[in-house]
Design a protein around this nucleic acid. Sequence first.
DNA 1: TAGGCCATCTGGTCCT
DNA 2: AGGACCAGATGGCCTA
Length: 307
Amino acid sequence: MLTLPYEEPHMMCEPRFGANYPRESLPENEDEREDDQDENGLPKKRGPRKKKPGKEQMDRAKLRRQEANARERSRMHGLNAALESLRKVVPCYSKTQKLSKIETLRLAKNYIWALSETLSAGKRPDLLAFVQTLCKGLSQPTTNLVAGCLQLNARNFLTDHNGEVMFSGRSPYDAMYPYPGSDMNTPPGHSGSNLDSSAKPFRHYSYSSAYESYYENPSPEGGSPHFDSQLSPPMNFNGIFSLKHDDPPDYGKSSHYGMRYCSAPGRTALAHNSMYRVSPEARFPYDLHVRSQSFQAQGEVNGSFHN
DNA sequence: TAGGCCATCTGGTCCT
DNA sequence: AGGACCAGATGGCCTA
């Protein structure tokens, strides 16, 4: 049903008028419309003539419409807030380069799916498959973003001359985002940061701790992992590359891709299982071919999902 | 400049 | 009757 909107443009509280109707082309007053024709110029059907609303009803209708608009705005703001919180728990969160709404939903769906697959498989997942699942159906830029996260993180994932995984120190993001209530493995001089956190919007992703908790306490009695952080999903993959040896001098400059940071209060218990203090062979939840694999991840992901 | 994304307005529908 | 939810329409902003 097409009816004229209630408000005149000058009556609108909002700067913009919902422009379904080209108001300039409409008569100023509904009374001025041709009574014998409908909006298509066709003769109107006869019937009981509608009683014209009085001024009081019109005012009331205006008020109700304005209230409905305000409610709708508020509802959409709530929806956006929920979406923003969702952005924070999917990989590659950035304050500065936000995923679009649709991409956020897609990535979240893929993320849940990938994690579910991992859990149901009950074994260490394959990185590439995980990333491919993560990127399924995403746009090219978002795929690049996700794959870029991996690639950047992989720069900090080192192996020694035997091909063994080396863990050294904190990740740049540990330095950038001081871990609340924890100085675990904090080398002297690493507690602070000379980097402006506002310029490092991406959160550090941690995969291992939650994963370890899950697999080290397989029985329900053993207690489920404490994922009591609002912003931390149960499991994150990107963080597997967050291990650091040397900070690249251009770290954070050459790319804004980053890693998830599980730093919310309440994560301390998990942090004691952190990747930084475990043997990679014994604890690291991932296949250790990730280094070579990850460097081709972006291309393979792109190839897999965008052809 | 075209296209993508977004906020907003709006009327319709459903539910309480 | 009124609120929540939804989808369509439109214009603004930004970027390639």
